[in-house]
């Protein structure tokens, strides 16, 4: 059974006086421990889909089934409790945290809110989470703005896995990172996926990254699905015009293989 099943999802906005569909009749499924990538140019609706799936904004039409249950039917306390299973990592790790927060507080919040650990147990759990994402437990006392971008994104991942989710939405989660750090973060995500069987909805404009980590890809254009399928197959031989344009525009290192 799929972790997430989205069908006929639609979200309309008004641009000036005329309405336009930011997301238009989009359907897809994600299976446990699978990575589904959403690709497309800016304005194609990738981030809107992420926010719809997380119920940060409400759709105008369509259905979202999460872990087999109607996710759109939930509200209030029931919705907040369910959120433990569906987490998100943002693009800019600095903007994703309260500027006044410390690492410990950021990780303490989900443990407290979802009653995962008692107050006495939490420091130990926080240390374990930090170690799980490859950080020193001593980092807990530091302020978020004091640590490096790569460390911040690891803290964001630690926060996302604190509630043992079955799905994490990664919205351009590695786009702002240096390439060397990016590789390490992607390895960490794959490692977590293998061990915890977490599914990822991986949003990126970078086909190179998508090809490296995603099982399947959905290519969007102006809010609609242009094509979808096995990530490597689609990128090797795109059928849609937008897919071809994306592949053609990706910078290549043309060098003779050693």
């Amino acid at each position: 059974m799929s972790v997430l099943a989205v069908s006929s999802l639609t979200k309309r906005y008004r641009r000036g006086s005329k309405p336009f569909a930011a997301v238009d009749d989009v359907s897809f499924e994600i299976n446990p421990a699978e990575t589904l990538a959403l690709a497309g140019p800016s304005g194609s609706g990738k981030s809107t889909i992420a926010r719809l799936v997380l119920r940060l904004i409400e759709p105008d039409a369509g259905r979202i089934a999460f872990e087999g249950a109607d996710f759109l039917a939930l509200s209030g306390a029931a919705l907040r409790a369910r959120r433990a299973r569906l987490q998100m990592v943002f693009q800019d790790p600095l903007a994703a945290f309260n500027p006044r927060a410390t690492v410990a507080r950021v990780l303490d919040d989900p443990l407290r809110i979802h009653n995962i650990a008692t107050r006495a147990e939490r420091p130990r759990r926080i240390a374990a989470l930090l170690e799980r994402v490859g950080l020193d437990a001593g980092l807990a006392a530091r302020a978020i703005h004091e640590i490096s971008g790569g460390q911040r994104q690891r803290v964001a991942i630690a926060r996302a896995i604190a509630t043992r989710p079955s799905l994490i939405v990664l919205d351009e989660a590695v786009s702002a990172l240096d390439v060397s750090v990016r590789g390490q973060i992607l390895e960490l995500l794959l490692d977590l996926q293998r061990q915890e069987r977490i599914a990822y909805l991986f949003i990126s404009h970078d086909l190179g990254v998508i090809r490296a980590v995603a099982h399947r890809v959905v290519i969007l254009d102006a809010g609609r699905i242009a094509e979808s399928g096995d990530a490597r197959a689609v990128i090797a031989d795109p059928q849609s015009a937008i897919g071809k344009a994306l592949v053609a525009a990706t910078p290549r290192l043309t060098r003779s293989r050693p």
């Binding site: 590789g183 190179g208 990254v209 592949v247 290192l253």
Partner: peptide, 13 residues
């Protein structure tokens, strides 16, 4: 160069 994830790189998967 090695960290670059091109369309011809070996997928991390």
């Amino acid at each position: 160069l090695e960290a670059h994830l091109g369309l011809d790189a070996k997928p991390l998967l």
